[in-house]
Design a protein around this nucleic acid. Sequence first.
DNA 1: CAACTATATTACCATATAGTAATAATTGAA
DNA 2: TTCAATTATTACTATATGGTAATATAGTTG
Lengths: 115, 115
Amino acid sequence: MEATTTHPKLSDAALEAIAERFKLMGEPTRIKILHELMGGEKNVTDLVARLGTTQGNISKQLGILAGGGLVSRERRGLNVFYAIADPSIVTLCETVCANLETHLERKMTNLRRRD
Amino acid sequence: MEATTTHPKLSDAALEAIAERFKLMGEPTRIKILHELMGGEKNVTDLVARLGTTQGNISKQLGILAGGGLVSRERRGLNVFYAIADPSIVTLCETVCANLETHLERKMTNLRRRD
DNA sequence: CAACTATATTACCATATAGTAATAATTGAA
DNA sequence: TTCAATTATTACTATATGGTAATATAGTTG
């Protein structure tokens, strides 16, 4: 008997949509933007100041994130504020985080063992 | 006052590691491989038969997934069996899936409204 | 050993894309 | 309107990488 739980067969289209979402989050600058936004909405200038890259690039990456529905956009006067549009992003990051920690712990334990 | 929950400040290195993991899952062929493996371990030939691409490419993508610690490798005779090494992959996919469904539902609802 | 099967690797090409610099567009103020 | 500030866009470059075809390696069988 199979020990694995049954997983729904997903269509190629569904799998490609999933990959697309992961791809959006699979880029250092974009994940850093999302991480900043986890602390609350920020405008472009804020993000440029916090992350070390050009304004053009920040706007570009924000455009990509907004296009994928991960962040929302709201103009207020001269500023444009971006915010996380999809709370599941946080869940995803936390899941990965928890796992990376496990990996690191395992690595450190192995180092400590030195058999 | 802030309505947002406090999120741990993550280092650039941590964020880059997170991005790296998402990147691994952010590619159609690789996510399809992972999806197949959710049904249980498979060897390379199995995967080549199920997904429509060359053996070389499957081996290459499996190598990338194994390098990132997402799948495990076990040789048994002529065959090499791959399996999901990290169950959190399934959680991640489910989270994204649930959210894509929500998005689709919202889209359909909006279509139905036609205001 | 030779022959066969399964998998990995190599070299290559074509495409996608992150980043930059410069410029445009938008908004508010004087 | 003119000026300043903020954001978006454009054109471009350099790099990374998915895919392929061909070859190499590893393991099995006779």
